[in-house]
């Protein structure tokens, strides 16, 4: 119940922004909020995943900073007089459980420096990398950890990397 009230508040805020604060539209707004809450409860029941507020903050900071990095990096590559790229398709082993977390990670990586998501395998994500020297595993793992923190998900333990 509490979760539904929270969602109603969120959708009311959305409506307020969409109507640009116009008070006379609240009749339609109220109907929209009720329909939105009902739809969201059906598509994404409140019990499945809970967003963590501190996780959200960390995700936003990470995302904004990496977006700027990504934009600047690709813009520099595009504007360089001698265009020099070393792209490759890489497989990234997923440690997030299947579901919303993986989708959010794929979307996030598409917007981050040098990677575009290009399809899921059984337990991996295919990534197109614009320049193989610019994208390091640690950045991808950091994105994965931030997504896990946002959704309160457990990461599978890292595999022992042997010979």
């Amino acid at each position: 119940m509490l979760a539904l009230i929270g969602r109603a508040a969120l959708f009311a805020g959305l409506w307020w922004a969409l109507a640009e604060g116009a008070a006379r539209d609240w009749g339609v707004g109220l109907v929209s909020v009720v329909l939105a809450v009902a739809t969201s409860a059906w598509l994404w029941p409140p019990t499945t995943t809970r967003l963590s507020p501190s996780g959200l903050l960390r995700f936003l900071v990470f995302f904004l900073w990496q977006s700027v990095r990504g934009g600047v990096l690709v813009a520099r590559l595009a504007l360089h007089p001698r265009l020099r790229l070393r792209p490759e398709v890489r497989r990234f082993r997923l440690r997030l459980p299947p579901g919303a977390g993986r989708v959010l990670l794929a979307d996030t990586l598409s917007l981050l420096p040098g990677t575009v998501s290009a399809g899921f395998g059984e337990d991996d994500l295919r990534l197109h990398v614009l320049d193989r020297d610019l994208v390091v595993e640690a950045d991808l793992r950091a994105a994965e950890a931030v997504v896990a923190g946002l959704l309160g998900l457990e990461l599978e333990r890292p595999e022992v990397t042997g010979a």
Binding site: G70, G71, L83, P87, S110, V116, H128
Partner: peptide, 23 residues
């Protein structure tokens, strides 16, 4: 410029998905 100069569909997606979004 990236969209025009990059060599293939994948690289062009980088120009759209990152630089234009930041813009």
């Amino acid at each position: 410029i990236g969209l025009l100069r990059f060599p293939d569909v994948y690289a062009r997606l980088h120009a759209l998905a990152k630089v234009d979004n930041l813009g």
